[in-house]
Computed example of a mutant assay.
Amino acid sequence: MPKTPPPMLPIPSLQYDLFSHFVTNNDSAISNTIEFWECIPKYFLTPAQIKKVTPEMGQPDPYKWSYQLEGKSYTIIIQPAMLEEDDGSFKAYFPGATEELVEEALKKILSNQHFGIHDPNLRETWVRFTLSMIYRELKAKGRSRNRIQIKRAINIMARCVLTLYQGKKEIWSGSILQDLVTVDREEYLEDTQAYHQARLPLFVSHAIDRIEARQFNYERLMKCDKQLSRWIYKRLIHRYIQADYCNHYHFMYSDLKNSGLLMQSEETSNRKKVHAALEELKQNGVLNFFEVTNVKSKSGKSVCDVKYTISPSGDFIAEQKAANKRRKDNLDKASKENYTIPSVNK
């Protein structure tokens, strides 16, 4: 299938202008998060889990995972990327933590109008980058990866295939980075200073068009060592909008299963993992405190679920208020420009 060529010139777009503007005194610390796209579990497989699903002789099959979102049932099938090794053999790679961090760096780069293009007519969004840009961005945020690791991550993101179903209906299929092309060199991802361009999934474009992207403290996210901490933090950003000292927020352990990150053999180990993630969020200035309440089964002999009640930090409250103001300002600007927000069926 031929690749879609990237736009050659910037395209005027009110929606992209709003996406690129933040309510903050420190632009470098702020980025955008897109709830529906972030909720698709895609970075949860560890090498140990991959080994379990790999046949004794051969490569792993695509991985299938089901989850719930807003009362709807979804299934994601992840087909790994097949990359050529130095010895000429091919190895399957699922997207993981490094790819998650590279995507965060690319979303940050996208918010810079020198490196992003949004086509409101085709509803396509492109990001322009070099390996060195990603390297510097990750290093600045304490998540250093070398250029070889970044190059591999880009290849994995471009060559893995995600297929998303709502119920039994397929609603989307594609890679995390689509139509990856080099711009300035013939050598494919060889020159770390060469510019490359990739089209982002339609969920990103739809969020820009619908003014749904929410600003958040990306610097604080990147301080989190644990993937589960980052997943919970993103969830709080989208769900705990009216964060306040007098307005505590709670969620259930069973809800966190949707992340795909709680796959220890024993539930007690999974619950310890959640506790450690919440402790990290507290240490990194997201939470003031949290409480854990076990929910017993009808017999009262076992724990069937866990309720987590959290109190936000002052920083998190301020950041959520800034995100709310940004959204209000953006909607007001869109209204003044007579921009009609398109409807999207998910």
Results as ranks from 00 to 15, higher is better:
residue 5 P to K: 03
residue 5 P to A: 01
residue 5 P to M: 07
residue 5 P to Y: 04
residue 5 P to F: 11
residue 6 P to G: 06
residue 6 P to N: 06
residue 6 P to S: 03
residue 6 P to K: 05
residue 6 P to F: 09
residue 7 P to Y: 01
residue 7 P to R: 00
residue 7 P to D: 02
residue 7 P to M: 01
residue 8 M to V: 14
residue 8 M to S: 15
residue 8 M to T: 14
residue 8 M to K: 14
residue 8 M to P: 02
residue 9 L to C: 09
residue 9 L to H: 15
residue 9 L to V: 15
residue 9 L to R: 13
residue 9 L to W: 10
residue 9 L to I: 11
residue 9 L to E: 15
residue 10 P to V: 06
residue 10 P to D: 08
residue 10 P to G: 05
residue 10 P to W: 00
residue 10 P to E: 04
residue 10 P to K: 06
residue 11 I to T: 10
residue 11 I to D: 01
residue 11 I to K: 05
residue 11 I to R: 00
residue 11 I to W: 07
residue 11 I to Y: 02
residue 12 P to K: 07
residue 12 P to E: 09
residue 12 P to M: 00
residue 12 P to H: 02
residue 12 P to Q: 05
residue 12 P to L: 03
residue 12 P to V: 02
residue 13 S to A: 10
residue 13 S to F: 08
residue 13 S to K: 00
residue 13 S to I: 02
residue 14 L to H: 06
residue 14 L to E: 08
residue 15 Q to P: 06
residue 16 Y to E: 11
residue 16 Y to P: 08
residue 16 Y to I: 01
residue 16 Y to F: 15
residue 16 Y to A: 06
residue 17 D to K: 08
residue 17 D to N: 11
residue 17 D to T: 13
residue 18 L to D: 04
residue 18 L to A: 07
residue 18 L to T: 01
residue 18 L to F: 05
residue 18 L to Y: 01
residue 18 L to I: 07
residue 19 F to H: 10
residue 19 F to V: 07
residue 19 F to D: 09
residue 19 F to R: 03
residue 19 F to L: 07
residue 20 S to M: 04
residue 20 S to F: 01
residue 20 S to K: 02
residue 20 S to Y: 02
residue 20 S to W: 00
residue 20 S to L: 00
residue 20 S to Q: 00
residue 21 H to E: 12
residue 21 H to M: 09
residue 21 H to A: 13
residue 21 H to K: 14
residue 21 H to D: 14
residue 21 H to L: 10
residue 21 H to S: 15
residue 21 H to R: 13
residue 22 F to Y: 12
residue 22 F to A: 05
residue 22 F to I: 06
residue 22 F to G: 00
residue 22 F to L: 01
residue 22 F to T: 04
residue 23 V to P: 00
residue 23 V to T: 13
residue 23 V to Q: 12
residue 24 T to L: 02
residue 24 T to H: 06
residue 24 T to W: 01
residue 24 T to A: 04
residue 25 N to L: 13
residue 25 N to T: 12
residue 25 N to W: 10
residue 25 N to S: 13
residue 25 N to G: 13
residue 25 N to P: 05
residue 26 N to I: 02
residue 26 N to E: 14
residue 26 N to L: 06
residue 26 N to R: 11
residue 27 D to P: 09
residue 27 D to K: 13
residue 27 D to V: 13
residue 27 D to R: 15
residue 27 D to M: 07
residue 27 D to I: 10
residue 28 S to A: 15
residue 28 S to G: 07
residue 28 S to H: 14
residue 28 S to F: 11
residue 28 S to E: 15
residue 29 A to N: 13
residue 29 A to Y: 09
residue 29 A to T: 10
residue 29 A to K: 08
residue 29 A to C: 12
residue 29 A to P: 00
residue 30 I to A: 05
residue 30 I to W: 01
residue 30 I to R: 05
residue 30 I to L: 07
residue 30 I to H: 03
residue 31 S to A: 11
residue 31 S to T: 12
residue 31 S to D: 05
residue 31 S to H: 00
residue 31 S to F: 03
residue 31 S to L: 03
residue 32 N to R: 15
residue 33 T to Q: 03
residue 33 T to S: 11
residue 33 T to R: 04
residue 33 T to H: 06
residue 34 I to A: 05
residue 34 I to Q: 11
residue 34 I to C: 11
residue 35 E to G: 09
residue 35 E to L: 14
residue 35 E to N: 14
residue 35 E to A: 13
residue 35 E to C: 12
residue 35 E to D: 15
